[in-house]
Design a protein around this nucleic acid. Sequence first.
RNA 1: GCUCGCUUGGUGUAGCCCGGCCAAUCAUAUCGGCCUUUCGAGCCGAUGACAGGGGUUCAAAUCCCCUAGCGAGCACCA
Length: 511
Amino acid sequence: MNALGTAEKRERLADLAPDRLAELDAADEADDRTLPELPNVEDYDEVRLRVAPNPNGPWHLGHARMPAVIGRYRERYGGWMLCRFDDTDPETKRPDLDAYDAILGAIEYLGFSPDEVVKASDRVETYYDHARTLIDAGGAYTCSCPAEEFSLLKTEGTACPHREEDPETAHAEFDAMVAGEYDAGERVLRVRTDIDHKNPALRDWVAFRMVDTPHPREAAAEYRCWPMLDFQSGIDDHLFDVSHIVRGIDLQDSAKRQRYVYDYFDWAYPEVLHWGHVQVEAYDVAMSTSTIKAAVAVGDLNGWDDPRAPTIASLRRRGIRGEAIVEAMAGLGTSTSNVDLAMSSVYAANRELVDDEADRRFFVRDGVEKTLLGGPETAEPPLHPDLEDRGVREIPVGGAVRVEPDDVPPNGKRVWLKGLGPVRHTRNAFEFTGEDIEVVRDGDVDVVHWVPADDAVPLRLRTMDGEETGHAEPGVAACAADDVVQFERVGFARLDRVPDDGEAVAYFAHP
RNA sequence: GCUCGCUUGGUGUAGCCCGGCCAAUCAUAUCGGCCUUUCGAGCCGAUGACAGGGGUUCAAAUCCCCUAGCGAGCACCA
């Protein structure tokens, strides 16, 4: 049974036990259902979701949770998904112009494609329109209190003098804000909530403020009056008819703040779910955009796709499928407590995805050369031990082989060169002994991988822990960049560069 | 300080709303066995958890209270 592929197994099972097959299918579907149901789905015509990244840098692993979970929900409910770049801070969270496409590329790599993509910085006029309507509704006022002063008043639950201003004044001053007549810090537009609400976080929050620094996008470079996230995203969620908001616990109070605006407009607030932060063990580099940015800048990391970086780009270069990341992220569920993602769960998911397709190859690290006396001229190990149809690799043996130092048996002892046969270590050579495979089954002889001394392809394997050099079997020269292979007894790797001549480069994925 | 939230084995998760079928699910991990010309895959088995204390109840992982720990918000950041 083990020699059969999955499809063949299914076929045989269908003949032998159709009931059991149905059970397996049901189990498969259940696997896909690790996420809890979204609340009150039946109340909406369509499940409409959004991912709302801040394009202030490429993505680290933690960012994958958002598209992974939201994308899975879209698939489950046959819903709709928006990608909205919340790029309304040209200064402190200044957008990185390359990040917009990098993020869309990452989402695609994870296996999702948004139904629509928008940038908040293209929609500023819309936010102004709604601000004016809100002023008319008595829901907002302009305020020139210095931030620290207002903060003190707020803490004691006292209104500032501007709170009672009339809508005409508010309109005039807001128009002046839009016209750029104030500098940063001189005036804001506040939402009128409850100034003595028991939760200080909800009291009269800022909806618009002045920013002196021009937005990096040319199309938005002239704006000086920018909405805050809570205002912008609240308006957009309604305008795009979002049914379910899924976001981090840092935004736990956002819904409560935005409800005030929704109430002024008489809109219904979407369903909302929060999740905690994701930590990833196994990396030396902290998983934060700014830390990685700094490490790349000073050369501690060799770019965002350095295998030591906890980034999406890094996993991608290592040949890990986006789907494996999604699987692992979906497995974390949507609980509001902080979670640790074990890389082993990403690896386990990936192994399942790539094991069948990855051809087997030999790669000998830091090999020692041994003259080979006797034996066949060609070795023929299978390309895949479980899929015989795939055929064999024909490896010309030549007069000498390389093996890893740890695999050299003591003098006089034998070892089985995989796909070639048994050899005895004599003085400084390997002597072909020709026994049957029984010697391996008996347990006295270890099976090891090897490469011919001639024609082996020099290869550098980049791993999370550094680089390893060695030689791969000659057939690797015919592989292409992007091929995912399993170096037997070493692990899965993605070929990154296979030049006609000279050193090939591969990235280690996992055992 | 004020407010909100979280706490199930190494990791993650199910169960908690609507108490009993939970001596607690599944995955991953680790260990062992079988199989295998890989330290991969497959098969079998083992390991290991309801934060602590009170209360309600015939019955509590599930409801209530307290304590502890963790996290978040109280930004003219997202």
